[in-house]
Amino acid sequence: MRRDARRTLVAYDIPDDRRRLRIGNALAAYGDRVQYSVFLVDIGPVKLARLIRQLESLMTDDDSILIGDLGPVDGGDSRCTFLGRRSGIKRDFVI
């Protein structure tokens, strides 16, 4: 993982099934789905810019995507905890 990689939370609200599937597939190429419309992505700034351009090209005015920077991948003071069903993400991790 790059030293400048950031843990990034991406959540989306896409009313159209076809676009929602395309957005989900695009995000799956970059990170892990943690809920139906929420992904956790460890990504550097260049790839993040590429991902944003890709997402914007798939969106319409009816869609919204939230991209939240959770801090450096290699540590920090915040902690996230997942409850219930989850994919390959560790249950607890420090941000």
Results as ranks from 00 to 15, higher is better:
residue 35 Q to A: 12
residue 72 P to T: 04
residue 87 S to Q: 09
residue 80 C to F: 10
residue 8 T to W: 06
residue 38 V to C: 13
residue 54 Q to W: 10
residue 75 G to F: 10
residue 45 P to A: 14
residue 81 T to R: 12
residue 39 F to E: 05
residue 21 L to C: 03
residue 13 D to F: 07
residue 95 I to C: 09
residue 2 R to Y: 11
residue 27 L to V: 08
residue 32 D to C: 09
residue 92 D to R: 10
residue 75 G to W: 05
residue 85 R to Q: 09
residue 63 D to H: 04
residue 9 L to D: 10
residue 41 V to L: 00
residue 19 R to Y: 12
residue 66 L to P: 13
residue 53 R to T: 08
residue 68 G to W: 00
residue 4 D to G: 01
residue 9 L to A: 06
residue 15 P to W: 07
residue 65 I to F: 10
residue 60 T to I: 08
residue 26 A to C: 13
residue 85 R to P: 09
residue 6 R to Y: 12
residue 41 V to P: 00
residue 93 F to V: 14
residue 12 Y to I: 03
residue 42 D to G: 06
residue 54 Q to K: 15
residue 65 I to H: 01
residue 73 V to F: 03
residue 90 K to C: 15
residue 59 M to G: 05
residue 74 D to E: 11
residue 41 V to H: 00
residue 45 P to S: 13
residue 1 M to G: 07
residue 73 V to Y: 02
residue 58 L to D: 03
residue 85 R to D: 06
residue 68 G to P: 00
residue 27 L to F: 03
residue 80 C to S: 15
residue 24 G to Y: 01
residue 89 I to W: 01
residue 18 R to N: 09
residue 20 R to I: 01
residue 24 G to W: 00
residue 17 D to T: 07
residue 68 G to C: 11
residue 36 Y to L: 04
residue 63 D to P: 09
residue 69 D to H: 03
residue 79 R to S: 14
residue 65 I to R: 01
residue 76 G to E: 06
residue 57 S to V: 00
residue 49 A to Q: 14
residue 75 G to Q: 09
residue 10 V to I: 15
residue 87 S to R: 13
residue 9 L to E: 08
residue 74 D to G: 12
residue 4 D to M: 04
residue 30 Y to D: 02
residue 18 R to L: 07
residue 6 R to N: 09
residue 21 L to S: 10
residue 3 R to L: 15
residue 46 V to C: 08
residue 36 Y to P: 02
residue 39 F to T: 05
residue 85 R to V: 10
residue 42 D to L: 03
residue 56 E to V: 10
residue 48 L to Q: 12
residue 38 V to W: 02
residue 49 A to C: 11
residue 25 N to H: 13
residue 91 R to N: 14
residue 22 R to P: 01
residue 22 R to A: 08
residue 38 V to F: 06
residue 61 D to C: 10
residue 75 G to K: 04
residue 91 R to D: 09
residue 5 A to S: 15
residue 87 S to W: 06
residue 84 G to P: 11
residue 30 Y to R: 06
residue 52 I to P: 04
residue 14 I to G: 02
residue 17 D to I: 04
residue 23 I to C: 06
residue 12 Y to Q: 01
residue 54 Q to M: 11
residue 83 L to D: 08
residue 66 L to V: 15
residue 22 R to N: 07
residue 74 D to N: 13
residue 85 R to F: 03
residue 59 M to E: 02
residue 56 E to D: 09
residue 17 D to F: 05
residue 27 L to I: 07
residue 45 P to V: 09
residue 59 M to P: 08
residue 52 I to F: 07
residue 88 G to Q: 03
residue 70 L to N: 12
residue 80 C to A: 12
residue 41 V to R: 00
residue 48 L to P: 07
residue 91 R to I: 12
residue 77 D to M: 04
residue 46 V to P: 00
residue 26 A to Q: 14
residue 43 I to E: 05
residue 31 G to C: 03
residue 61 D to M: 12
residue 78 S to T: 07
residue 94 V to G: 06
residue 25 N to L: 07
residue 75 G to L: 11
residue 68 G to H: 05
residue 68 G to T: 06
residue 90 K to T: 15
residue 45 P to R: 13
residue 31 G to W: 01
residue 21 L to A: 14
residue 15 P to N: 02
residue 36 Y to N: 01
residue 27 L to A: 02
residue 12 Y to P: 00
residue 62 D to C: 14
residue 51 L to A: 05
residue 58 L to W: 07
residue 61 D to F: 14
residue 17 D to E: 13
residue 84 G to R: 05
residue 92 D to G: 11
residue 67 I to E: 00
residue 53 R to M: 09
residue 12 Y to E: 00
residue 49 A to I: 11
residue 82 F to M: 08
